[in-house]
Amino acid sequence: GATAVSEWTEYKTADGKTYYYNNRTEESTWEKPQELK
């Protein structure tokens, strides 16, 4: 299949934890999204 550009962006909180934000759905998660595995 075609490689889609991930909708997920990786961010870090002030205390250094990583989370992921989906630009399309406006969803955020602590877990690494399936698309990034």
Rank of each mutant, 00 (worst) to 15 (best):
G1P: 13
G1A: 14
G1E: 14
A2Q: 14
A2D: 12
T3V: 13
T3P: 14
A4E: 13
V5R: 03
V5M: 12
S6K: 09
S6N: 13
E7S: 06
E7D: 12
E7R: 01
E7K: 04
W8L: 01
W8P: 01
W8Q: 01
W8G: 01
W8F: 02
T9S: 12
T9I: 12
T9F: 10
E10G: 01
E10W: 05
E10Y: 03
Y11G: 05
Y11H: 12
Y11F: 12
T13M: 06
T13Y: 04
T13R: 03
T13N: 09
A14Y: 02
A14T: 11
D15L: 04
D15F: 04
G16R: 00
G16H: 03
K17E: 09
K17A: 06
K17D: 09
K17P: 01
T18F: 09
T18W: 04
T18V: 12
T18S: 11
T18E: 06
Y19P: 02
Y19Q: 04
Y19G: 05
Y19D: 02
Y19V: 08
Y20R: 00
Y21L: 05
Y21A: 02
Y21H: 08
Y21M: 05
Y21N: 03
N22P: 01
N22K: 00
N22E: 02
N23G: 08
N23P: 08
N23K: 10
N23R: 08
N23F: 09
R24S: 11
R24E: 10
T25A: 01
T25E: 03
T25I: 02
T25W: 02
E27D: 05
E27M: 07
E27T: 07
E27Q: 10
S28E: 10
S28Q: 12
S28F: 15
S28P: 03
T29A: 08
T29V: 13
T29R: 08
T29W: 05
W30I: 07
W30Y: 11
W30G: 05
E31P: 02
K32L: 10
K32F: 05
P33M: 01
P33V: 02
P33G: 02
P33D: 03
P33A: 01
P33E: 02
P33S: 02
Q34F: 11
Q34R: 06
E35R: 01
E35G: 10
E35A: 11
L36T: 05
L36A: 04
L36R: 01
L36S: 06
K37Q: 15
